[in-house]
């Protein structure tokens, strides 16, 4: 009996969503190594890590919202607003400071998150509609009231930090450098993991995503949880946006817009169910990694850009089919 339970557990681990994504990633890496061995080395990992950086921060936010049974399409607009408005403010006011920029962007994000929290938690508006609205509202406000031109002349400290590296690797092709900002998503992963797994607040996010009525009847404060979710996400999105600016060493109003679909796809590939209640940090990391490995290496392998779009689309569809087939199998499996 115990033995049986153990083998079943091992079987479950090997057929879990995360493992399937790991298989796909492994398959991709073998393929890449086979086609272009020189592209396969420490540099690849560093490049992938760097390109994952902000996307992972956004994906963790999106994951929290999806677990709670919602969907957030407003974060690109929020991130854009926070990074552009913060940069503009600092440039015009002539102040400098990396930490300060994060604080300002995070505070702006908090305020914007409060807006989403109000619409979802108090007004009970479906999350997709609410965030579609705030997305357009905030992006529009940015363009009308704050500005449209790229800001490339960052204050010196902020400009400098983008060139700070944790470590560098010398390869034949050149130098690959790991930005210091890689620490941010790593810390965030740990925080989100602890939050979701070991706090009642985190469990209440799962609970309202599983069944909001049950959560209410069980005595969870659904409204407070929703406010927390959107405000927390707001802060992280603000910081994520600022990171994006510091890395690129310019702030612009368009580049992040439209990235929400890819982020949602990464989260869903990572095993979060779009219907809510399921998802975890490891899966999301893997989902983001997969999408970045594919898009980065296709460039290196010389695959035309439109083929990349096609392949990533294919990957998303396959990934989501696997998730939903598995969910269906669970639903149809004999009940215990």
């Amino acid at each position: 009996m115990n033995q049986q339970a153990k083998t079943e557990r091992i079987k479950n681990i090997f057929s879990s969503n995360q493992m399937i994504v790991i298989y796909i990633i492994a398959g991709m890496l073998i393929l890449i190594a086979g086609i272009n061995p020189s592209a396969f080395g420490p540099a690849t990992f560093i490049d992938t890590g760097r390109s994952m950086l902000t996307m992972l921060m956004f994906a963790l936010c999106e994951m929290i919202v999806i677990i709670s049974g919602g969907i957030d399409v407003s974060f690109p607009a929020f991130a854009t607003f926070c990074m552009y408005a913060t940069t503009k403010l600092m440039v015009t006011a002539g102040i400098d400071g990396v930490l300060l920029s994060f604080v300002i962007a995070g505070a702006m994000g908090l305020g914007l998150g409060l807006l989403n929290g109000f619409l979802v938690g108090t007004c009970k508006i479906p999350t997709l509609i609410a965030t579609l609205g705030t997305s357009s509202l905030i992006h529009g406000a940015l363009l009308s009231f704050v500005g449209v031109n790229d800001i490339t002349n960052l204050p010196p400290q902020m400009d400098e930090v983008g060139k700070q590296y944790l470590f560098q690797v010398q390869t034949d092709a050149g130098v690959s450098s790991m930005s210091i900002f890689i620490i941010l998503p790593i810390v965030l992963c740990v925080i989100v993991w602890l939050l979701l797994r070991y706090t009642m607040l985190g469990r209440s996010i799962y609970a309202i995503g599983g069944d909001v009525n049950s959560a209410q009847r069980a005595g969870f404060n659904v409204k407070r949880t929703q406010y927390f979710i959107y405000m927390f996400v707001g802060v992280i999105v603000g910081i994520g946006g600022m990171t994006y600016t510091l890395l690129a060493r310019n702030a612009n109003t368009t580049q992040l817009m439209g990235s929400e679909m890819m982020v949602i796809a990464a989260v869903v590939i990572g095993g979060a169910r779009i219907t809510g209640g399921h998802g975890n940090v490891l899966g999301t990391i893997l989902g983001v990694a997969l999408i970045n490995i594919v898009s980065n290496n296709l460039i290196v392998m010389g695959v035309p850009t439109y083929w990349q779009t096609f392949l990533i689309g294919l990957l998303i569809i396959v990934g989501v089919i696997i998730t939903s087939v598995k969910a269906k199998r669970v639903a149809l499996a004999p009940k215990i």
């Binding site: 797994r197 070991y198 706090t199 009642m200 607040l201 985190g202 469990r203 799962y206 609970a207 995503g209 599983g210 069944d211 009525n213 049950s214 959560a215 009847r217 069980a218 005595g219 969870f220 809510g276 209640g277 399921h278």
Partner: peptide, 30 residues
């Protein structure tokens, strides 16, 4: 106990049983 039992399909048996107890005793961590 309502007709739909007000359980959480996405959580484990153990957590479903213990959740209310933890909530009522105002625990912050799990």
């Amino acid at each position: 106990i309502y007709q739909d039992f007000a359980v959480f399909p996405n959580l484990t048996v153990a957590e479903n049983i213990a959740l209310n107890y933890e909530l009522d005793t105002c625990q912050k961590t799990v």
